[in-house]
Design a protein around this nucleic acid. Structure first.
Ligand code: ZN
Ligand code: ZN
Ligand code: ZN
Ligand code: ZN
Lengths: 138, 138
DNA sequence: TATGCACCCTGAAGCCACTATAGGGTCAAG
DNA sequence: CTTGACCCTATAGTGGCTTCAGGGTGCATA
C-alpha cells in the first residue's frame, strides 16, 4: 500500500502521515525500488488508532501513551480512564468558556444601535473610555 | 508609564506587549534615556481594546479590522456585526463538536470493563479490529 | 520515443498567538 | 558598590499540522 492509499483509507493527508512518522507515532515502513513508502495492514491499524484518538480530542502525547498502554494487554486501565477523564474535564472547561463567550457576543450584537460606528455598542463595549476628555488621542 | 506598569494595568505579559508592537497592533511608543519604552494613555486604551477583543475570541486579524473600524466613527457597523456574527457561528460549531465529543468520551468511560487493558472498552473502541485473525500484528 | 500527468520524495518554512530563553543593560535603594 | 527589580534585543520553541521549493518515479498516451 502506498502512502496515498493509506491516506485515503484513513482520511488523513499524506503530509500528516509523514509528519506522524517523523514524530515517532507511526513506525517507518519499508520502501519500494523507487523509494516509495510501502505500508502493511499493521500501519493502517496504528494510523486508524491515532486518527480516532485525535478525533476524540486526545493530544499526540496522550495518543502516544494510549498506544503504549494498548500494546500491553495486562496493564491496568486506570491510566486510560485517567487520560479520558482529564479530557472530559478539559472539554467541560472549554464548553463553559465558549458558552459565556457566546452569550456575551450575542448580547453585544443585539445591542448594536448603528448604523455607524459612532453609535455601535459592540465597538463601544470594546473600547475604553475616551469620551470624557481625560486624555487626548495620540 | 513603563512596560511593566502597562502590563499590570491590562493584565498582559510584558512579552505579549512587545509582541503586539512587533505585529503592528500597538504603535511603538517613545523611549526614555535608558531606551525603555514609555507609554501614554492612548497606548493603554489601544491595548485594552486588543485584550478585550481577544478575550471575546476575536483573532488578531479581526482585532486589526475592528480597530480600523473603531477609528472611523462614520463607517457603517455592518462589518463589525458581520465579524461578531462570524465568531458566534464559529463558537456554535465548536460547542456542537465539543458536546458530541464529551458524550462519546463519557460513554466510553462508563463502558470500561477493566481492570486490565485486555477488557478495556475505551482502548477497544479506539483500536481497529485485530481479533478476527484477518491480519497479524507487525 | 517523447510527453504528460499523477503520484512520490526530502527538507525547510509557515501558521496562530504567544511563551521562553540567552545574554546583556538601567536604575534606585541600602 | 552591590543587589535586585526591572528593562532591552534576538532567537527559538509550543502543537499539530500545512505549504512550499525543487526535485524523482511510474504508467499511459501521441
Ligand atoms: Zn442593549
Ligand atoms: Zn454596531
Ligand atoms: Zn457499555
Ligand atoms: Zn478500561
Amino acid at each position: 500500500m502506498k502512502i496515498g492509499d493509506l491516506a485515503k483509507r484513513t482520511h488523513t493527508r499524506v503530509e500528516t502521515i509523514r509528519f506522524y512518522e517523523k514524530e515517532g507515532l507511526l513506525p517507518a515502513p519499508g520502501r519500494s525500488g523507487g523509494n516509495y513508502r510501502i505500508y502493511e495492514q499493521a500501519h493502517l491499524n496504528r494510523l486508524s488508532f491515532i486518527r480516532r484518538s485525535r478525533d476524540l480530542g486526545f493530544t499526540l502525547d496522550q495518543v502516544r501513551k494510549l498506544m503504549k498502554l494498548a500494546d500491553d494487554r495486562d496493564a491496568p486501565c486506570a491510566e486510560v480512564n485517567a487520560i479520558t477523564a482529564a479530557n472530559i474535564a478539559e472539554i467541560d472547561r472549554k464548553l463553559a468558556d465558549l458558552g459565556a463567550l457566546r452569550a456575551e457576543l450575542v448580547r453585544r450584537l443585539e445591542c448594536c444601535e448603528g448604523p455607524t460606528i459612532a453609535d455601535c455598542r459592540i465597538i463601544e463595549a470594546l473600547a475604553p473610555d475616551t469620551r470624557e476628555g481625560k486624555q487626548r488621542p495620540e
